[in-house]
């Protein structure tokens, strides 16, 4: 059973394959707070092509998470236009166009890992057999096979976050939105998950939007790095990475990597000094 919310057919989206998957055009978002309006996003324009891995980096308050939440229709922009797969973000949300990974794993403690991953499938009305098949497949993808019957609180933080990524992969959305998914993990676990995430992206060919505040993480993972700065939240630089698609962890010691990291750092500093 699908949700009672209607899924709008959008014929243009199917024909216009060359068009960017996500397109933001002069996007504005102002929050009304008790201390007056806060300009969370100002004049943000960005195209994200299919299959790219885009990182958003910047200091806190620069609107990187807000922008991701706008794409997911968890926030509503107050100006400009935003399309996801050629639809409005809300229509895309109802068409289950993306999987979302939060800062914390946010697994339900009353469900086993397997049933947590099956949660979106249950809601979207997949049959029992298909649920089981997909759960097994994504568990293998994130290397958690055998932990299906465990409860989340019996697993380490890194394993929980892997399970939450599996949950976002379980239904076939071709966009994956990740909001500082590895922020709470220690460096060693984070390195390994970064490596696995790249492999996963390579295997699934999804379009990924990734929010982080770590420069090495952004450079290591992305095809495009979007540097943002606060007050008002805006894009200051978009860096296209020349690194090859195949990236072992020690690529981080190469001059090219350090060069890009330097450029990102410069961009961040420029945003501050303005």
């Amino acid at each position: 059973m699908l949700s009672d919310e209607e899924i709008t057919n959008w014929p243009e989206a199917e024909t216009a394959t060359a068009a960017p998957v996500i397109r933001a055009d002069h996007l504005d978002l102002t929050f009304q707070t008790n201390d007056g309006p806060v300009h969370a996003l100002k004049d943000v324009s960005l195209d994200i092509a299919k299959g790219s891995f885009v990182s958003f980096i910047g200091p806190s308050g620069c609107g990187k998470t807000t922008f991701l939440r706008c794409i997911a229709a968890l926030e509503h922009p107050t100006g400009g236009s935003l399309t996801v797969n050629g639809m409005t973000p809300d229509e895309a949300r109802r068409a289950r166009a993306y999987g979302y990974v939060f800062q914390a794993a946010g697994l339900y403690p009353w469900r086993t890992i397997g049933r947590n991953i099956a949660l979106p499938l249950e809601i979207m009305g997949y049959s029992r057999a298909e649920q089981a098949e997909r759960v097994a497949r994504v568990l293998e993808l994130v290397e958690l096979s055998g932990f299906e019957k465990k409860f989340p609180w019996q697993l380490s933080g890194g394993m929980q976050q892997r399970a939450s990524i599996a949950r976002a992969l379980a239904f076939d959305a071709d966009i994956l939105l990740m909001d500082e998914p590895f922020g709470a993990l220690d460096e060693i676990v984070r390195d390994r998950l970064n490596e696995e995430l790249l492999k996963l992206w390579d295997k699934t060919e999804k379009t990924i939007g990734f929010v982080t505040h770590s420069i090495p993480e952004a450079v290591y993972l992305s095809t495009h790095i979007v540097v943002m700065s606060p007050r008002p939240g805006r894009i200051t630089d978009v860096i296209e990475s020349p690194l090859p698609k195949e990236r072992p962890l020690d690529i981080r010691d190469t001059p090219e990597f350090i060069e890009i990291a330097h450029r990102v750092r410069e961009g961040l500093r420029a945003g501050y000094e303005e």
């Binding site: 919310e5 968890l74 939060f102 914390a104």
Partner: peptide, 24 residues
């Protein structure tokens, strides 16, 4: 807020949110 956002990203109905999240 995160759990509610998660259910929103699935475009879950009120009944589904009640049954799978809020009652437990």
């Amino acid at each position: 807020a995160m759990q509610r956002d998660l259910m929103r990203t699935y475009a879950a109905t009120w009944g589904q949110t009640l049954w799978t999240l809020r009652l437990p």
